[in-house]
């Protein structure tokens, strides 16, 4: 028993080392034990999961080192473009487990348009007997988000020497590099102020957040989640309530959660409304008001936009389903 526990502690240490260098994709296999060590293992797994999620949004990985370019995703494909190997980063970024990739067509992790493009590119690659090429593709995450990337393709012989395989490398250009490019662009144009996109570029600049700022923004996030029905103050007032300023709240919130404060509020209201329409007996109108909307037409419009069906469609569907049971 003692030996078994030492083994488990060893695995925990390994996991902690991986976490320390920013590899949040690892999990410890769970056993049927239900003791203190098992509780620690479960907590570590959940902790890694939380960190992995935060990391996808904030891209804080190795932020102190500011790497210029890092290899983000690697895939090994056989001749028919079926995935043979994939690195952990790819599974983390695309939110699929490693096993999901193996043996699947590479195109199933691309947007439809890119999948068609891939077929053309790879056909030409083989026809022209190329060894290397690159192309722009849009990856599709499990959550349906799109990640546009340049993919570098190299040909190599598999270990047995029987088949030509492909190594695909996707490079991530860090914000530091982007910033350098942006500065250079500004200099070349020499008209940074009148540059048509200059305002947009400024908005994209990363806002510097202290831990205290992050804590305040998180409080704001929780306040929205738990009080969707509240009459929302102006962004400035909301920032003051949280003890921060409008700029930090606006750009910090977007940086942390990948969505604007206003859109998040609407999204949360609709999420709640969607559940209430299905499971409460309240009228749709009173649900709309209960989750903080001021007018029914506005509620119906944004609801339809988000879910592609109207509130009444959902209620009718649910009622029919219930009556059938």
């Amino acid at each position: 028993m003692e030996e078994k526990n030492l083994e488990r502690i060893h695995v925990i240490n390994e996991m902690l080392l991986e976490l320390a260098v920013g590899n949040f994709y690892y999990r410890i296999e769970r056993s049927s034990n239900n003791d203190e060590v098992e509780a620690l293992i479960m907590t570590l797994n959940m902790f890694a999961e939380e960190m992995q999620n935060a990391n996808i949004h904030q891209r804080i990985l190795n932020s102190s080192k500011i790497p210029l370019d890092i290899a983000q995703m690697s895939f090994v494909l056989n001749q028919t473009s079926l995935i043979q190997m994939v690195n952990a980063n790819a599974s983390g970024i695309l939110s699929y487990s490693n096993d999901t990739f193996i043996g699947k067509p590479f195109t199933s992790f691309l947007e439809n348009e890119s999948a068609l493009k891939w077929d053309t590119v790879i056909k030409q690659f083989y026809e022209k007997n190329l060894f290397e090429t690159s192309t722009q593709l849009k990856f599709k995450t499990k959550e349906g988000l799109s990640i546009p990337k340049t993919v570098y393709i190299s040909l190599f012989q598999n270990l047995k020497g029987t088949e030509n395989w492909l190594l695909l490398t996707v490079i991530h250009h860090s914000s530091y590099k982007e910033q350098l490019d942006l500065n250079l662009k500004g200099k070349i144009n020499n008209k940074a102020i009148n540059f048509p996109n200059s305002k947009k570029n400024n908005l994209k600049q990363k806002v510097k957040l202290s831990y205290e700022d992050i804590r305040k923004i998180r409080t704001g996030y929780d306040r929205i989640v738990n009080n969707v029905e509240m009459e929302f103050p102006s962004l400035r007032e909301f920032a003051l309530e949280l003890g921060t300023n409008e700029f930090k709240l606006k750009y910090g919130f977007k940086a942390l959660y990948g969505i604007t404060v206003h859109r998040f509020l609407i999204q949360e209201r609709l999420r709640k409304a969607q559940m209430l329409i299905q499971y409460s007996d309240d009228s749709i109108k009173s649900i709309a008001y209960a989750v903080g909307f001021k007018s029914m037409p506005h509620f119906s419009r944004v609801f339809k936009k988000m879910f592609n069906y109207t509130p009444s469609d959902l209620r009718n569907y649910h009622n029919i389903k219930d009556n059938k049971l």
Binding site: N34, D35, A39, E268, R271, K272, M275, L276, S280
Partner: peptide
Amino acid sequence: AREGSILVSALALIVDSPVSIMMSEF
């Protein structure tokens, strides 16, 4: 915590083992 919380007035979790205690605390 979100979708599941509508229509819930309060939630009491019953725990005893180390795993269930940590799960509820987390």
